[in-house]
Simulated scan of single mutants.
Amino acid sequence: MKKVIFVLSMFATCFSSEVIAQKNVSFGPLVGVNFSKLTGNQPYSDWKTGSTAGIFINYSGESRFGVNGQVLYSRMGGESPNGASKGHLDYLQIPIMGTYYLNGRGNKFRPKVMLGPYIGFLLKAVNENDVSINPEGATRPFKGVDGGAAMGAGFNYAIGRMVWLNADVRYNLGLTQVMNTVSDVHNRSWGINVGLSFPLGEYSPSTGTLR
């Protein structure tokens, strides 16, 4: 976990310095759907559907590289193989991803690939009846922090002079154990996300827009 926090801190420091220096920044809301499960020998090893919502901030440099940071509410967990029960793990997730655009600034349609670490803070763990599956006690079943790698691909599309549609398909690979009572249990999830970005700071003088 210390390694995950260290990597996140390094990304955040680089992101902040670039933002201050360039100010080619946009931000906006994001919503999505995810399909998640837990690995290992535990009850929720099959895929289930959840939701994602939050805000994001983009930095796009003069080159094809950029950085994307997000703060998300994400409902993860899994379903029992026979479909009899579901476990919902609600996280506050913070992914920070390096972004590479497949074409240059000034294009209306910009495909992209993304990769970076994330950290998640468990808000609550309940079953389908909203009953806690992480009760208070000497040893709570689920850990309070999750960390891993986020990777994906998508595009930014200009729908107005100052507004961009952001869309991506993402895979989250949990690298830390999420349970105290069972070993080798990790989060896995696929997500489809859509957002709108609006300018923050200065425009690029070459295009008059932000990405």
Rank of each mutant, 00 (worst) to 15 (best):
R140W: 09
S132E: 14
S204E: 06
K124W: 15
V71C: 11
I192C: 10
P199E: 06
Y59Q: 05
S204L: 08
K124Q: 15
V67Y: 10
P117D: 11
G66E: 00
A167S: 14
Y100G: 04
K112L: 11
A53N: 02
T39R: 02
Y203N: 08
P81K: 10
R211C: 03
F65D: 00
R75S: 14
I94L: 13
F56K: 05
Q177E: 15
V113L: 09
G28H: 06
L210H: 07
M1I: 14
V194N: 01
N127G: 11
L165S: 03
M76G: 00
K3M: 12
L196C: 09
R64C: 04
T39V: 08
P81A: 10
Q93F: 08
R170T: 13
F109T: 07
V163W: 00
Y100I: 06
D90L: 05
G83C: 04
I96A: 06
G154Y: 02
V19K: 03
T49C: 01
V31T: 07
Y157E: 01
G147L: 07
L200T: 01
G87A: 10
G174H: 05
N166D: 15
G174S: 03
G98D: 02
G32N: 01
S204F: 12
M114D: 05
V19G: 08
R75D: 13
L102P: 00
G208H: 08
Y118I: 09
G50L: 02
G148R: 04
G104W: 11
G201M: 03
F109G: 09
G154T: 01
A149T: 13
N34M: 01
E18W: 02
K48L: 09
Q70K: 13
R170G: 00
V131W: 00
N58S: 01
N127C: 11
W190L: 14
M97T: 11
D146P: 00
V67P: 05
F27R: 04
N82D: 15
D146Y: 06
E136A: 13
T13P: 10
I96H: 02
A53Q: 03
L115N: 05
D168F: 08
Q177L: 00
D184G: 04
D130V: 12
A21M: 09
F56V: 01
G28C: 00
T176H: 08
K2Y: 14
S74L: 00
G98K: 09
W47K: 12
L102N: 07
G106R: 07
G78T: 11
L122F: 09
M114G: 03
Y157M: 12
K108D: 15
N41G: 07
N134Q: 09
I5F: 15
A158H: 08
V126H: 15
M114L: 15
V185C: 06
W47H: 08
A12K: 04
G201S: 06
P43V: 03
R188G: 11
Y101E: 06
I57Q: 05
K108W: 13
F121C: 10
G98N: 06
G148M: 07
N166E: 14
G208I: 00
Y171W: 05
